[in-house]
Design a protein around this nucleic acid. Structure first.
Lengths: 194, 194
DNA sequence: CCCCATGTAGACAGACCTGTCCACATGTCT
DNA sequence: AGACATGTGGACAGGTCTGTCTACATGGGG
């Protein structure tokens, strides 16, 4: 068995920061807490990350890689099933929303927390969403409106995420996912009409 | 002419807090800054609001009333035009997104910033979104799926908001609104099919 | 005339935040 | 054996945060 304490310091710091930043918010999480929870010393931390600023950007990069890889994998798992085109997004989001650690999209949350006051972070968020659209586009048949539909589906995904975030602690609400499914039905019709 | 400085202290504090909280985020805005900008003293502030906690809740209430009233009014302004059903949401959101002070939805941002660590605020956010769905429903003809469609449209609105938030400082992007419009077209078709 | 609500300016306590610094331990490579 | 990278614990400085406090000004009503 490999626990977090086996891993090298830098990775311990990054994983701990990820969990805390994602759960409690970035500004609300002090460096001291990350250091204590990661089980490293302050010097070690600052040897690996010159500032909290740098840690935040590393966190976003790590989160991006981790989420995108999960997303692509989950879609592939669903692709073979009964669902057609965009519809396999539904069970994928459902899986995510039901994870007890779900706290919305880290990039939406970061943009909400910092706004224009942290342009580098905002740029990472933009790239993240762009990559998400690219993955969604693979679900659609080639056509002139393929990217437009993928973009629309991505807008719906983001809407479902923030709604699901408000529905936490309100189990069986599911209105976010229901609305999302209704939207996808309409988009799918446009995609497979011709 | 009536400027902000004519108004009574409590209102000055609330308006100032609104602008700062919305623009820079709640946690990032210190009480001292609100006090200085509102031009009141610390004692005056704490006489009207027992804590920052209370100010935040007052801010959310105020923002809710203000935004909902703008939203309902803007929809009514568009209702008579060429647009049918849900489609009048498009110019309304366009108007909002192009406001230079646009910084996303204050309630989504608050939920993103505090998550489950501030349940009273989360509750206000939920009510806000519920009211938004109610207003959207008025655009739709009576039917069995009316509320389902309104809910789906609201999901799309929230998605468009967070995407537009990422597109600030990237003028002429407009992909958020384009995707939103595509979604609405599909929903509208379902609404007016029977 | 005096009371009192309401306002001002600003010092202060106690907490937390980031980032630097010191003295010391341990294991690896030459 | 000695050099060096890498780690520890913890003190520290300088800043910001919330919330309380003192001392003082002003103006309207009994």
């Amino acid at each position: 068995m490999t626990t977090i304490s086996d891993k090298p310091p830098r990775e311990r710091i990054l994983l701990t920061a990820h969990d805390l930043f994602y759960r409690d918010g970035i500004r609300a999480t002090g460096i001291d807490k990350v250091i204590a929870e990661a089980g490293v010393s302050k010097v070690t931390f600052y040897r690996h990350f010159p500032s909290k600023h740098a840690l935040i950007l590393a966190f976003l990069d790590y989160r991006h890689a981790r989420w995108i890889s999960w997303f692509a994998d989950a879609l592939q798992r669903q692709a073979g099933r009964n669902s057609q085109g965009l519809m396999c997004l539904v069970p994928v989001l459902d899986e995510w929303f039901n994870n007890p650690l779900f706290r919305g999209c880290a990039f939406i949350n970061t943009a909400a927390e910092f706004g224009d006051n942290f342009p580098e972070a905002l740029e990472v968020c933009r790239c993240h969403k762009q990559d998400m659209v690219g993955i969604i586009a693979k679900l659609l048949p080639d056509s002139e409106i393929r990217m437009s539909l993928a973009n629309a589906a991505a807008v719906a995904v983001d809407g479902a995420i923030v709604r699901a975030q408000l529905e936490t602690q309100t189990p069986d609400a599911k209105t976010a996912l229901a609305g999302f499914e209704l939207i996808l039905a309409g988009l799918n019709q446009a995609a497979f009409a011709g």
